[in-house]
Design a protein around this nucleic acid. Sequence first.
DNA 1: CAATAACATGCAAGACCTCGAATTTTCCGA
DNA 2: TCGGAAAATTCGAGGTCTTGCATGTTATTG
Lengths: 151, 151
Amino acid sequence: MAGMRVTKPRIALVETLMKLDGPVSIERIHQQVGIKSCDLVTIYRCLAAFENLGLVRRSYLHNGTCLYEQTLGVDRHYHIVCKSCGKTDKVDYTLPDGVEQRLQDKGYSHLSHVVEFFGVCQECQQVAISARGTSIGIPARGTSVGIVTEA
Amino acid sequence: MAGMRVTKPRIALVETLMKLDGPVSIERIHQQVGIKSCDLVTIYRCLAAFENLGLVRRSYLHNGTCLYEQTLGVDRHYHIVCKSCGKTDKVDYTLPDGVEQRLQDKGYSHLSHVVEFFGVCQECQQVAISARGTSIGIPARGTSVGIVTEA
DNA sequence: CAATAACATGCAAGACCTCGAATTTTCCGA
DNA sequence: TCGGAAAATTCGAGGTCTTGCATGTTATTG
């Protein structure tokens, strides 16, 4: 083991993460795990722990809210996220080779990075056209009633 | 003008942004502008407006909090941010050419992206060594009493 | 198997960021 | 110079995410 204990919430969380694939919101995970079975804070903490172990990767919506994704047997990839509906898609991108090496040479340790692309997907553009006048519905962190319906 | 009005808060804000260089926190800007001269929310909204006009660029600390930076006569660049003290530095990196084009071809519009590097700077590593046992002090969004002392 | 140390969880509180509605300020033409 | 429309600002409230502390569980030692 990796210095972590096997607890009921943790088991349920892992099972859920395996079932879902692609980045999902914490709220979604919480619902899937079962609101009763554990507190939202526990999900946050467990995911943070899993992230340290590299079992899980974090990405972001345009508004800064997080999505998590299980990473076992999946190669490293990046996402484009729709600013409007939150849908995510893989992007053909890889970090240039020398960058992190140069930073290390400069004396930085514990390196990590965030690369995230944002845009408005085709479907949302069409919706925006048919509903002229309404601005594109970019959600915001201080807003939205809980769940951003992914997928 | 650019469809925007010249108001007292806006003037003070621009002056402050010119004085400061490099990414700074909103709290810092607010203090510099003068807590009395305008509300924190106004700073948020003005910076958002300035960002739309391209006068200002936004970057992020490891914990997700924002830093703003004036961009007049400055070329586009990216940052490495210390996870511990929040200090920022320029990084020798540019986004590969084809990426956004490919996304556009896929039907995405209103493209933007975030690229951010994180690490622990040399000074903070030494502090961590001299203070064994204490973990590296990565601040967090729900924490910190207002100001992360930049620079 | 019992006792203990270490880790995990839940709750409450706080930080950051955003929006909506009401008020104030700016800008324009007469 | 004055009056009114449009835009900015303020205030209050709500949403996401993180922490501290008290409590509950898990694993380990004797």
